[in-house]
Amino acid sequence: MIRHILLIKFKQSVDSSQIDTLRALFESMPSKITGVVAVEWGVNDSEENKNKGYTHSVLMTFDNEEARQHYLPHAEHDQLKEVFRPLLEDILVFDYQI
């Protein structure tokens, strides 16, 4: 399995309805793309103040490398990126195998 972590910093102009729409798109991926096992959405609530402005996270789990490679160019992923990219101030992406 592969974990795909996104740490997200939204533009200040982004409102909660746009974030809710994005969350729904991410959470729909397992039902739309074979090999996407799970998606978790999180909002930073750490009191340590070390998040460097990143406020949200997405944790995706893929069955295997083939599933990740299937997801990356998939039309559903492209549609998600069309909504996502204009909202981003910055993003960190980190993948690892489990």
Rank of each mutant, 00 (worst) to 15 (best):
I2A: 08
R3S: 12
R3C: 06
H4I: 04
H4A: 11
L6M: 15
I8R: 03
F10S: 04
Q12C: 00
Q12L: 08
V14C: 00
S16N: 10
S17P: 00
Q18F: 06
Q18C: 08
I19E: 05
I19V: 15
D20M: 12
T21R: 06
L22I: 14
R23Q: 15
F26Q: 06
E27W: 02
S28A: 15
M29S: 08
P30I: 10
S31F: 04
S31W: 01
K32T: 12
I33W: 03
I33R: 00
G35A: 06
V36T: 06
V36K: 02
V37H: 04
A38Y: 00
A38Q: 12
V39Y: 02
E40P: 01
W41C: 09
V43N: 01
V43M: 06
N44H: 04
N44Y: 05
N44P: 03
D45P: 00
S46E: 13
E48W: 01
E48N: 07
N49K: 13
N51P: 01
G53N: 13
G53V: 11
H56Y: 11
H56C: 13
S57G: 15
V58L: 08
L59N: 09
M60T: 03
F62Q: 01
N64W: 07
A67S: 14
A67W: 03
R68M: 13
R68Y: 14
H70N: 15
Y71D: 05
P73A: 09
P73R: 05
H74M: 08
A75M: 02
A75L: 03
D78L: 14
D78H: 07
D78Y: 02
L80N: 04
K81I: 15
K81G: 11
V83M: 01
F84K: 02
F84Y: 14
F84Q: 02
R85I: 14
R85G: 00
L87Q: 12
E89A: 15
E89H: 10
E89S: 14
D90A: 15
L92N: 04
V93T: 14
V93P: 02
F94N: 12
D95V: 01
Y96N: 05
Q97W: 11
Q97N: 11
Q97A: 13
I98S: 12
